[in-house]
Amino acid sequence: MTVGEFALATGLSTKALRFYDERGLLAPADVDAHPAYRRYAPGQIRTAAQIRVLRAAGLTVDDVRSVLADPASLSARLEAHAAELRRRRDLEDRALALAAAGVYAAPDPDDDGGPARPGPVAERTVGPTPWAGVVQRVALDEAGEEGTTERANAAFAMLFQALAEAGSAPAGPPWTALRPVPGAADVVETVLAVPLSGPAPAGLRVDGHEVVTGTLPRRVERYVDVRADAGETDLLDDAPGGELPHPDLLGLMDAFDAEDAGAAPEIRQILVDPEAGHVELAVTVREEVGPGQR
């Protein structure tokens, strides 16, 4: 059969036939080297039809080539592909529901034309807070992975032990904060901090970690209280790039941007009760002068 006849019989264009020939899926039965005519055997129509079916099902060219080379692998490859399609369909359905619910849509403006203020955002005044912490570097492609969380938990345990040995008492729940690493766009530093009832002990050491200390000044904080529950927003943690930012974090940033445009706030994730899924997200809005200060 000529290329034209074979194309009409199979529904594959001459361009597609040449592509599958080059990729090793469907070579002509005969090629006349001088006029470069290609001819196909009638029995190859079945192969062409199978290629069309498998490609229409979404299998890759490499997968189709493997099936043609090893027909016994067809069932297992189809089962694996069907499972992947179901996973992707589930993710797409959840993303569609999330988009339709408007959770991540831009907030509607108020009647006066100003931006709508998110409901869960609140403010509080906090006194000076001495703290001590350790620093961990995290590659962005590792952020959120279980191993990263385990390393953070181990570092916190070592920090608490070092503080106890130094006679320094925590003054509240610990927090974490991210900060960029100069010259390393794909790496961030995580500060794991513990608020203290007094100044950080001099010479504090935590084996294998960089120790940092400081004092947050008296300040006004803007914060949201985040609690995990059964009705919590689906953050699509199985989506490419990992889970979405929590809606309450977006509300916090919307409120911050509305009144403090151009600022770059440090977001502190305060671990109120992490095992129960209870955290606070806080940023400093402004520093305040305390009583007796000028």
Results as ranks from 00 to 15, higher is better:
286 R>V: 05
122 A>L: 14
25 L>S: 05
222 R>D: 05
73 S>Y: 04
115 P>M: 09
169 A>N: 08
131 W>Y: 15
225 D>G: 06
13 S>E: 02
108 D>A: 15
47 T>W: 07
275 E>I: 12
137 R>I: 00
261 A>F: 14
49 A>H: 12
85 L>R: 15
168 S>K: 00
103 V>F: 03
277 G>P: 00
283 V>T: 02
14 T>R: 15
67 V>N: 02
40 Y>F: 11
157 A>L: 12
223 Y>T: 05
142 E>A: 15
189 E>F: 10
39 R>G: 03
148 T>Y: 06
249 L>Y: 07
83 A>E: 13
50 Q>L: 13
72 A>V: 14
86 R>T: 14
142 E>Y: 09
280 E>V: 04
142 E>K: 09
62 D>S: 11
31 V>K: 03
159 L>V: 01
101 A>P: 01
55 R>W: 06
29 A>K: 06
264 A>D: 14
55 R>H: 06
154 A>L: 14
76 A>T: 15
244 L>G: 03
146 E>T: 13
52 R>G: 08
279 V>R: 00
259 E>Q: 13
209 H>L: 15
208 G>L: 11
237 D>A: 14
189 E>T: 06
29 A>L: 06
53 V>W: 05
286 R>S: 09
10 T>Q: 07
186 D>R: 11
158 M>C: 08
190 T>P: 00
92 E>H: 06
273 D>K: 00
170 P>W: 01
160 F>H: 11
129 T>L: 05
202 A>W: 08
43 G>K: 07
219 R>A: 13
54 L>K: 01
171 A>C: 08
100 A>H: 12
136 Q>W: 02
276 A>Q: 06
266 E>V: 15
121 V>N: 04
210 E>M: 07
50 Q>N: 11
215 T>R: 13
99 A>F: 04
169 A>M: 12
125 T>P: 05
23 R>Y: 10
145 E>C: 10
7 A>P: 00
152 A>E: 04
249 L>K: 08
244 L>W: 01
222 R>M: 14
108 D>M: 04
135 V>Q: 02
125 T>R: 14
136 Q>M: 15
125 T>H: 11
45 I>C: 10
80 A>W: 09
276 A>I: 01
173 P>I: 04
181 V>G: 06
259 E>G: 12
164 A>N: 07
217 P>M: 09
74 L>F: 10
118 P>H: 03
267 I>R: 10
253 M>G: 03
133 G>R: 00
105 A>N: 10
71 P>E: 01
72 A>N: 07
165 E>A: 14
42 P>R: 08
158 M>T: 12
12 L>N: 03
179 R>N: 03
208 G>M: 12
288 E>P: 05
93 D>H: 09
68 L>R: 04
146 E>L: 13
41 A>L: 04
99 A>K: 10
88 R>W: 09
133 G>Y: 00
270 I>V: 15
263 A>I: 10
33 A>K: 07
216 L>A: 14
7 A>V: 02
115 P>G: 10
6 F>H: 02
209 H>D: 08
25 L>W: 03
12 L>R: 01
108 D>I: 09
130 P>N: 10
274 P>K: 03
227 R>F: 05
216 L>V: 11
174 P>G: 02
145 E>Q: 15
183 G>D: 10
70 D>F: 05
135 V>R: 04
30 D>K: 09
188 V>G: 06
240 P>E: 09
93 D>W: 07
261 A>G: 08
80 A>H: 09
203 G>F: 02
13 S>T: 15
261 A>N: 05
45 I>T: 11
185 A>L: 08
254 D>N: 15
54 L>R: 01
